[in-house]
Amino acid sequence: MRAADLITASVLILLGALVIVDAMRLGIGWGTDGPKSGFFPFWLALIMVVCCAIIMAQQTRITTRHIFVDREKLRPVLTVLWPAVIAVALMEWLGLYVASALYMGFYMRWVGRHSWFAVVSLSLAIPIVSFLVFEKWFFVPMP
């Protein structure tokens, strides 16, 4: 838990620093007609960096036995995440409907171990239904 907290806080500090640098480029002071563009982001990022630093300091003092996530539990999370990422990548060139049919079919077969009949019929039915709902009834075009 502590390690994860420290990592998150440091990532946020880095992001904050990035924002501060960009804000400086835009100008953080008073322009001809009011505060310059960088004014608001600059102060936001500055306070964020300070807060994260305090969080880090707090974390180094307290020790918790909690671990962020153990390997046993991480597995199901990743089995959801990786296929989803692949499905999104497939959507770019297969289109949303084909990719989601593949994704659903894959997940039901691999994780749920449902019968092929259920897998094929559901993974075809759901994209078709959503196609009808979105494109025919509400005229929202999809890829």
């Binding site: 959801v80 296929p83 989803a84 994704y103 659903m104 997940y107 039901m108 994780v111 171990r113």
Partner: peptide
């Protein structure tokens, strides 16, 4: 196993 991919 059906709900999860459906929701995503």
């Amino acid at each position: 196993a059906i709900l999860t991919p459906l929701i995503i």
